[in-house]
């Protein structure tokens, strides 16, 4: 059953309907948020943790959501922040520089039993891992999710122009990596 964001929000604000409305919200957004998170942290188990953390944060902050942005934007922002926080925590535990986080992610990717891609897909993922954090986010959201720049702009709080430039540089770097790796 399709339920609009507005309806979910109004029911979330009503205490006796909150539980059911939250179930609806999880049902509606779990897959989209999962794939968004998975492309950032790569490993399924980590993605599952981050997705749970994301919805837990949403649950705890329902009353603080002022509806200045859309529900979709708010959820994506939380998911992005949670994923990046997760990576930073992993960085503090295992590494000291961003380069080592890339290595950590690469290990995550290679060890992930739920990666079904072929050799080319693996190379593409490794190429994406060479990008700086923000460019990686932009590339994934644009290339895989084909998200409109305007939505990306609201989620990442960055101008459309800057996002377009960022994607352009990211795509160039990925292609260079693919050409030079052989």
């Amino acid at each position: 059953m399709h339920i609009s964001d507005q309806e979910i929000m109004s029911r979330l604000k009503t205490l006796n309907e909150r539980d059911r409305a939250f179930q609806s919200l999880v049902g509606k957004y779990q897959e989209r948020l999962y794939w968004h998170i998975r492309k950032i942290v790569l490993n399924h188990d980590d993605s599952d943790d981050v997705l749970q953390n994301t919805f837990l944060k949403v649950w705890k902050n329902i009353d603080n959501f002022r509806e200045e942005s859309s529900l979709f934007t708010w959820l994506y922002r939380i998911a992005t922040n949670e994923a990046l926080t997760y990576l930073n925590q992993a960085k503090r535990k295992t590494a000291t520089s961003m380069n080592e986080v890339s290595e950590y992610l690469q290990q995550n990717l290679e060890a992930d039993e739920y990666f079904d891609g072929d050799d080319i897909q693996m190379k593409l993922q490794k190429a994406i891992l060479t990008l700086p954090e923000k460019q990686r986010l932009v590339f994934n959201m644009r290339y895989f999710d084909e998200m409109p720049y305007q939505e990306m702009s609201e989620i990442l709080d960055t101008s459309v122009g800057a996002l377009k430039a960022s994607y352009h540089h990211a795509a160039k770097k990925v292609e260079d990596y693919l050409n030079n790796i052989e």
């Binding site: 779990q30 998975r38 079904d116 891609g117 080319i120 693996m122 292609e175 693919l178």
Partner: peptide, 27 residues
């Protein structure tokens, strides 16, 4: 090997364990 992104098959290389999304709400 494709040298340009446009030559790549754009597909999701990741998968999830069976019934993951079906069980997620309850978890």
């Amino acid at each position: 090997s494709p040298r340009k992104l446009s030559e790549l098959r754009k597909e999701n290389p990741f998968r999830v364990p069976g019934n993951y999304f079906e069980d997620f709400q309850a978890r």
